[in-house]
């Protein structure tokens, strides 16, 4: 019995997994190996890269200028993740528990922004936050400001743009986690004498942690590598690791150093995520 199940499982699954394995192998794994190989190569002045073992590309990262940019990127990504969590959790909670028959429509609204390209949406903020934009017009109409104020091309605008862009990545996993939640557990908490707040902190929130973890990772990773939003909304005055990597590949024609930065970013992200899952994830999950 058991054997038959296992057999069918492996045959069917192998067939189903073949396309995705091929896809990821061709378009993810092999390019990734190229990047790793390039990162130890030596860039020519004009083109070409001489493969070899040149750890110099990694040593160059220790330039204080580049370290500062990497640290700043992680700081901005962490802040984006935190703001997305603070905004996204109440939203997901509201949709699941108070949305009732509007639940599906509301979660659809969260996804609506994906229908338009990120680039177009980022440009929309340039218009909205500009000197003659609707935000400034409203502030003046209400009488909060006398003239146009600088809302755009600031680090705050970058943070806002990133929060805006990545908020759905936080809300969707939180929604999925909370949706599975058994409401009877809340009633049980209440019956056992816990206040609503206590029930939330000791029952609901811990059970939604997998969603919090998934959402945080989904927001943190693209935020740390972002390079379009800092250019468009930050007036290129907030240089992030993504900008630095792009610059190495195009302007500097230094693919070896660009690859080293990419590998380093990937390793740092992986490390940060493993640390995070270990700290927030399993500990608390098991503790409950």
């Amino acid at each position: 019995m058991r054997e038959r199940v296992a057999k069918g499982w492996s045959l069917g699954l192998a067939a189903l997994l073949a396309p995705v394995t091929l896809w990821l192998g061709l378009f993810f794994l092999i390019p990734l190996l190229f990047i790793v190989a390039y990162s130890f190569g030596t860039s020519g002045v004009y083109e070409g890269i001489t493969l070899g073992f040149n750890p110099g590309n990694y040593l160059r990262v220790f330039d204080p200028l580049y370290l500062e940019i990497i640290v700043r990127s992680f700081g901005i990504a962490a802040l984006t993740t935190l703001i997305c969590f603070l905004l996204g959790y109440p939203l997901a909670y509201f949709i699941v528990f108070k949305g009732r028959r509007w639940r599906n429509a509301l979660i659809l609204l969260v996804m609506v922004p994906f229908w338009t390209s990120l680039l177009i949406r980022a440009y929309a903020w340039v218009v909205i936050l500009g000197g003659n934009g609707i935000a400034n017009k409203t502030l003046q109409f209400v009488g909060i400001t006398d003239g146009p104020v600088n809302l755009i091309f600031t680090p705050e605008a970058v943070l806002m743009g990133m929060t805006y862009s990545y908020l759905p990545f936080m809300v969707l996993p939180l929604y999925a986690a909370l949706e599975k939640f058994d409401v009877r557990l809340k009633e049980a908490g209440k019956d056992l004498g816990a206040s609503r707040w206590q029930t939330f902190l000791r029952v609901t929130f811990p059970l939604s942690l997998p969603g919090v973890i998934a959402g945080s990772i989904l927001v943190f990773i693209p935020s740390a590598g972002e390079f379009v939003i800092p250019d468009l909304l930050g007036g290129s005055q907030t240089v992030m690791t993504g900008n630095l990597i792009q610059n190495q590949f195009l302007q500097s024609r230094d693919w070896a150093f660009g690859s080293a930065l990419s590998v380093l970013l990937a390793v740092l992200l992986l490390g940060a995520i493993m640390f995070y899952i270990r700290k927030v994830g399993t500990d608390k999950l098991e503790g409950v």
Binding site: L65, V239, Q251
Partner: peptide, 17 residues
């Protein structure tokens, strides 16, 4: 600028950040 390209780029990155 040939070889100096990367120095130009590094300096402009330094300026912007």
């Amino acid at each position: 600028p040939g070889e100096a390209t990367r120095e130009y780029e590094r300096l402009f990155t330094e300026v912007k950040s």
